[in-house]
Design a protein around this nucleic acid. Structure first.
Lengths: 372, 372
DNA sequence: TCCACTTAAGCAACGCTGTTGCTGAAGTGC
DNA sequence: GCACTTCAGCAACAGCGTTGCTTAAGTGGA
């Protein structure tokens, strides 16, 4: 009780401590990228002593996860040795199961894709056939790096689901998936650990872990395509909520007793925004999206709004400017949103598959969401 | 970068590990209340071994924070010894600085108030005078338990502020508080550690830690008084956002291009809701509040909505039923919100002062927000 | 009444963590 | 060439939770 559900089983013993600190170091190595980072900087970043960092990095080097990468210029003494992550020490597979296609990607530890496959997909087909196609894609990708360990498979799907037990819920229009234990089924077929999440959450995770992602902090990813959804990153972690249902942004009421939405409600952002798009009034669509975004910014006090999806990609400028205008106007009146940046996620749907792979990689770097 | 701001300095060494596990045990003891909890249950709740729990509880007993409290009935062997928290081992002071009054409360470790004082307050008076009044209240309360340690002072204020550095921002109508370093000033006057937060966050914290609080999980506290604000508890912790600004619920747009609000915006929930109240249409006010609450429930996938504040207190039933109706209607259409409970926080403003004290107590039990 | 059995809790030894203190390595600069 | 600075690793150490075992304190059947 008292919210302790998320804290249950949170006792820390020495192996857990060791794992935690190693993950922390790995995360800093990953963030440092190819440039690398010195032991003393790692010590400063973790609060551990330099000697502890030396021991931990020695273990990581033994495991092949880190290597030396040259020296820093001397500042009057022995120059610092630079360490960097070995990206191709381990890999992960990301799957994006969408309504009309399957994208599969093999990424290295740094999150970079090293192999991609795409195939058409009929979500209406029997589950077994869809699953077989997904498993085949996984096997093909694993063959791209035959002698390196693949940590697992991350899967991003459009519909509602339970992230904890890996079971789908009510994929709109495809009743055969309702209650389907996708995680267990795919884990059995591939022999690999499987993690499952919503597509918007995967995209948000990809952005949260992207190198040079314009700084970190809390942000929201708003995806405007055939629908409108959101992925939230709070405190550097994907916020999934109690039932993996967080991020239902599109059916936020923005116009009390407004026009009917496909969901049965009235005045939902999604309906208003897409209606404006449909009648060609894109600035109005952007303004509506901005109003929803501003609500979210005020409610959560986030630093950053990232827009994505096909509809946004069609006219990035109008959407970015429109959303930014609404947020800045509210901030200028003394409301929330001062200093919030509005940007666009490029690359279409590819980030979703990469984010799915990050579902597997995130735990390696200690980036575990609350629903895990 | 990459959201690691919240993870900086997160390296864990042995003292940190010890402190973490002790806090975890203390939190379970607190949650168990006067009934107590056995060592083996503590072991199960933390994931630690029974022997580790024995060692930790032995230290807590030495420090006077825990005591034995009888035996469980035997299940065929040696009966379990029950342990419970010693509530009056330590205390904390909570202050609620409101526009028209100062409420101060001394609470024990269990969060129960043992002494309360109230005094009128003029926030428009010079800062020094207000501060002197607050410091006096603290000293008077400390005298109520002369020989017990007081851990610190928690302060709840209405306006925007920065929780991290304890500085006020733009308290509406009282420009002399803009930028005032309340935490530092009060810490110097009282010689005690001081924590500062918004009143709605304090209320939410009080609810999150309340014994028998109808189960835990994520929830939102919606306060409808002269204004409308929210306190969010996600993952058992108060969500404050990057700048302690989270919870701006009242100026969420609910009616695009609707009536003008005092904030300068249009169609804010607060304006719509209070306008309906003013014209006597309370069911409509409740429906509007419910629409805003449903937006929040969908966005964050929370378990529970708690209503409070003077306006709600005037007609709890109408508000609870109205808000519940909107959330349930949306859930029934397949939207978010299934199983969400809507309840009322009673006790008027008293919980705010108690929640302020919990700002000091929360770290003892490992309940540290992200902004700390 | 006794004794076998069950369950809980503590003692002792242990492995392993990060820390401390110090030594050697590898540069700079007068 | 030597004094100084800075980094990195070795060795000893304190302290954490764990493991293995013993003792305590009940139940229940013979």
């Amino acid at each position: 009780m008292n919210g302790s559900r998320t804290k249950a089983q949170a006792g820390v013993n020495l192996p857990a401590l060791r794992h935690h600190n190693a993950a922390l170091i790995l995360d800093l190595l990953r963030a440092a990228g190819a440039e690398g980072i010195s032991r003393l900087e790692l010590a400063e970043g973790t609060g551990l002593t330099p000697q502890a960092v030396s021991k931990i990095t020695a273990r990581l080097r033994e495991d092949g996860l880190a290597v030396g990468a040259g020296l820093r210029p001397s500042t009057g003494g022995k120059p610092r040795t630079v360490l960097r992550l070995v990206p191709d020490a381990q890999f992960a597979v990301g799957l994006h199961l969408d309504r009309d296609g399957l994208t599969a990607v093999l990424v290295d530890l740094a999150g970079r894709p090293v192999a991609v496959t795409r195939a058409p997909l009929d979500l209406g087909a029997p589950a077994d056939r869809v699953l077989a196609g997904a498993a085949d894609a996984v096997h093909d990708l694993c063959a791209a790096e035959p002698h390196k360990p693949v940590l697992g498979v991350g899967v991003a799907v459009p519909g509602p689901l339970d992230h904890r037990d890996g079971v789908l819920r009510r994929v709109t229009g495809f009743p055969q998936w309702d209650g389907y234990p996708l995680r267990a089924a795919l884990a059995e077929r591939t022999g690999l650990p499987v993690a499952l999440d919503k597509d918007t959450n995967a995209a948000a995770l990809a952005l949260a872990l992207a190198p040079g992602g314009a700084g970190g902090g809390d942000f929201a990813y708003l995806h405007l395509g055939t629908g409108l959804g959101a992925g939230l990153v709070l405190g550097g972690r994907v916020h999934r909520g109690a039932r993996t249902g967080a991020g239902e942004f599109g059916h936020q009421t923005l116009q009390l007793d407004g026009p009917l939405c496909g969901c049965g409600g009235r005045g939902c952002v999604e309906a208003l925004c897409l209606a404006a798009e449909a009648r060609g009034d894109r600035p109005e669509a952007a303004r509506i999206l901005g109003a929803g975004a501003a609500n979210l910014v005020g409610l959560l006090d986030i630093d950053r709004v990232v827009l994505g999806g096909r509809t946004v990609a069609a006219d990035e400028d109008t959407y970015v400017r429109g959303v930014r205008a609404v947020i800045e106007e509210r901030a200028s009146r003394g409301g929330a949103g001062a200093g919030v940046t509005v940007t666009v996620a490029r690359g279409g749907d590819r980030p979703v598959a990469e984010g799915a792979a990050q579902l597997v990689l995130a735990p390696v770097f200690g980036r575990v969401g609350e629903g895990e």
